[in-house]
Design a protein around this nucleic acid. Sequence first.
DNA 1: TCGGTTATCATTTTT
DNA 2: TGATAACCGA
Length: 722
Amino acid sequence: MDLSLMNKEQRKAIETTEGPLLLVAGAGSGKTRVLTHRIAYLLGEKGVPSYNILAITFTNKAAGEMLSRVNSLIEEDAGHMWISTFHSMCVRILRRDINHLGYDNSFSILDPTDQQSVVKGILKKRNLDVKQHHPRKILNFISDKKNQLITAEEASKEAEGYLDGLYSEIYTDYQEILYRNSSLDFDDLIMLTIDLFDRNPDVLKYYQNRFQYVHVDEYQDTNHAQYQLVNMLTAKYRNICVVGDSDQSIYKFRGADITNILNFEDDYPEAVTIKLEQNYRSTKTILDAANAVINNNSERKPKELRTERDGGAKIKTILADSERAEGQEVVRNIRDLSRKYAYSDIAVLYRANSQSRAIEDALVKSSIPYKMIGGMKFYQRMEIKDLMSYLKVIQNPHDDISFTRIINTPKRGIGAKTVDKLTAYGGIHGISIFEAINDADFIGIPKGAVTTLMSLLDKLKNLKEKSKYMSVTELVDETLYDTGYLDALEKENTLESRSRIENLDEFKTVTREFDNEREINDELLFEFLSEMALVSDQDGVEANAGVTLMTMHASKGLEFKVVFIVGLEEGIFPSQRVMYDDDELEEERRLMYVGITRAEDQLILSRADSRMIYGKYESNLQSRFLQEIPDELIDGEVIDINTPFSRPKQQAKSTVRQKSRVMTNNSGVSFKVGDKVTHKKFGDGIISNIKGDGDSKELDIVFTSEGPKRLLANFAPIEKKE
DNA sequence: TCGGTTATCATTTTT
DNA sequence: TGATAACCGA
């Protein structure tokens, strides 16, 4: 194999095939290239059989890309190699052997919406207020526990305090419901695989012997459960190669544990560590900015990216009046750039999906093609979820979660009362709703409803038969037709219903693609559903024309010639919630680092003086991350603000400034962001933000001794200093 | 049971 | 502001 184009470190990484290897791979350092070549080297030069190789990536897209790149490097067939995400790997393992744990092998996989409805159901049953106990919070709790490999039983035992105890009980209920529905959530996939290995050493041994060479990409984003799983798999041969960059760890909120990568050398004392610091992506200007920003993090191993692309265009900044103006300004710049670059070379990145609207609006008005990743996701649209629920019920009739979704969709006169009765009856007798319908006559369900239900049951049974010899696409057509779903939409004949029909058609391009790849067999539907449950939005990033809009999280692993980062304001990015927590702020800064390092040629940073949030205007100071970039890297006038909370210098655009200078009734004083104030109780502080107006006007004040507080401007006992 | 209206509440980030 | 849950009247 020709490794002459590799640098010294890369070559060493490829050739170090035995024993544990830690690859510290900075952004743009060609780690995918190294990984693919390493696998090809194992196959070609070392003669390792392809079935002995496992590579785990973060997204399906990354997996697909890696597979095709490996294939282009080697002659022989790499067909038996596993290159997949943690989750699809676990589905594959569990599908074979989960019956050892008492689950049905044809389990379904819950998506987040399904999880929510399960939790909501539990809350309702326990007469708990959804507003007091947010399902999302509870699901976070459950997910945290599962990532720590703590079972419901253990959680209940260890629980301290009321909330902990309650949530643990809900966790128990939740797990029971999932078990009864033979459903697993994302975290179960990992946790139960470990459980399977624990209880069945033979199964573990099989996979240990099979995967003698294990690779894990984005190792900094693994959580404890994933860490455990990898360690189990590699315990015998210890040929484990992990790749990661602690500076790009941005998923702590989801349980990612950065110490997994930081402690790798302790876990494997014989490990070889190789640092890839040569960047092949960005200009020096961009890298200097990235390095300058990330250097403000105290909790990091020193590392400095180098590039041979000297100089490059300076970083441009945009200061707009409002988020609307920001969108227009971004689009104006995109138009200018489009003389030199294709639209697909350009990306606009933001902190939160809600920021996309202003950009989208401006793009639509200029008829510039664009594609948005995330946001209102295709697979979360009602019609797609409905169809998926039908398919899930056809595949697994005991899936009550999906069945309750479609039992009255389209409307067929089955109301909440009927569903309640069926659920209650099913609960008592330990049977699913599907089975409970057979006894519908005896449980006080109106005759009309019984007839409808029986006919629905018939249709579903028929479809299940059909699923055994039909392609998924054909089955989708049959389902939409037989159940009257399509008919109902056609009758509605509104703009919306027509767009729903279009989306369903669009869905069929997905099924067609799936069908083309395989032969018809009676497991087809199951395979399809398993695969679908694990696709992410990132997987939808295609190389077709158009500007790409997405969050910085979604941008990890991608690169663009030109990158815009918008909304660089305190309270937006860094987000309000993390601004005063050092750890979280560092994670936020890493996110900025990820954003900056996506850019190859040109970086454009933008912010708005004031923007609409919850229907109110708010103005924020410029982001501290902007200030962390050295002035000499920035093109044009630099807005000089020395500390995050000092007062911005007057700009030429004074009309805008006025918006943030809100008058208050408080002794006739006007407060503005950056003002120093004294509070009777809290002492000295600085105003960091102003929200609302009139009586509900609020001041965010950071007090020297008390930290951040939010106070009502008209009523708080504060005085302006100086 | 259903459709329309009003009230209320919230924004990170996602395999 | 915009989504959605609760509510109400037919």
